[in-house]
């Protein structure tokens, strides 16, 4: 049973620590359910921060309410855990005040598409240089299993025992239609895929929209589950033209777990660039 000896674990920990990404974590242990997809997302975000060597004091993470809302508590950066649905305006306010900061907005599907859905098109059309991590588990987890804006039609939830009567939104298609300059989808079970997209999103000049499909292991046993999704991920083919809005939209309308960068407009100026050029 050598393997359980402390010295071995210490060595392992030392090796992990050396990689540096733990620096971006606080000592607070996440309160998420064991098996929740958020662990993997967190891991990919801190690893990306480490890969990009972002200064911790120059990273701001703004969240709303929901299981995803707790995210900033576990990251050792400037975290702002705000109110339900408003992470985008607050994150935008930060970025428009301090351009040197790297600003993340973290929101669940209820947060970003339900209560805060009105802010999405406007933050997108201003092209404020922030990154939105949309943790989409198609359910309200924190309040224990009610229908969300992305819950599939007819799926039974605690607020619709006989099945959801509301047609779900399609986040990637929406972001494209709103005119986002960076649109991607990731799967919480694919850390490498997430890291690749996150890195490009964070370095993108302008608003980056990342739809992350992630299982809620506690309140969704039928739809977005590890069992159903593992192995179904289809990374976007290299031949896809990321500058083509039409191809992106066509891809987005395919109802499968297609991941990667759907669309990117590298030329579009960010909001501050526009303000500086036209308003002063």
């Amino acid at each position: 049973m050598d393997i359980l000896k402390n010295s071995y674990l210490d060595e392992e920990l030392e090796a992990v620590k050396k990689q540096g990404f733990l620096d971006y974590r606080t000592s607070q242990l996440p309160t998420w359910c064991p098996g929740c997809g958020y662990f993997g997302i967190t891991h990919a975000i801190v690893q990306t921060c480490n890969d990009l060597q972002l200064k911790k004091e120059e990273v701001c993470v703004v969240s709303g309410i929901g299981c995803a809302g707790r995210y900033p508590i576990f990251m050792d950066v400037y975290g702002f855990h705000t109110v339900h649905g408003r992470s985008l305006p607050i994150a935008a306010g930060i970025k428009l005040s301090r351009e040197e900061l790297t600003v993340f907005a973290v929101a669940g599907d209820g947060d970003a598409l339900g209560i805060g859905g009105g802010h999405l098109p406007h933050t997108i059309r201003r092209n404020v240089d922030i990154t939105l991590f949309l943790f989409d588990n198609s359910i309200y987890g924190l309040t224990k299993g009610q229908t969300s804006p992305t819950t599939p039609l007819n799926q039974a939830t605690n607020s619709h025992l006989k099945g959801n009567p509301d047609t779900p939104l399609k986040p990637v298609s929406l972001a494209l239609a709103y005119g986002a300059s960076f649109v991607a989808r990731c799967y919480a079970g694919d850390v490498d895929g997430m890291k690749d997209v996150f890195r490009q999103a964070i370095t993108h000049k302008g608003f980056s929209f990342i739809h992350i499909v992630t299982p809620c292991v506690t309140f969704d046993k039928t739809n977005i589950t590890w069992g159903r999704l593992n192995g179904t991920v289809e990374p976007i083919e290299p031949v896809h033209d990321q500058t083509s809005f039409e191809s992106a939209l066509r891809l987005a309308e395919i109802p499968r777990l297609i991941t990667g960068i759907f669309y990117q407009d590298k030329k579009r100026p960010s909001y501050m660039e526009i303000i500086r050029e036209t308003q002063s």
Partner: peptide
Amino acid sequence: TEDEISAIGHVIGAGYA
């Protein structure tokens, strides 16, 4: 902004920064 909620949100973001 798109509404008053967003307006005070931006103000709080700037104040925080």
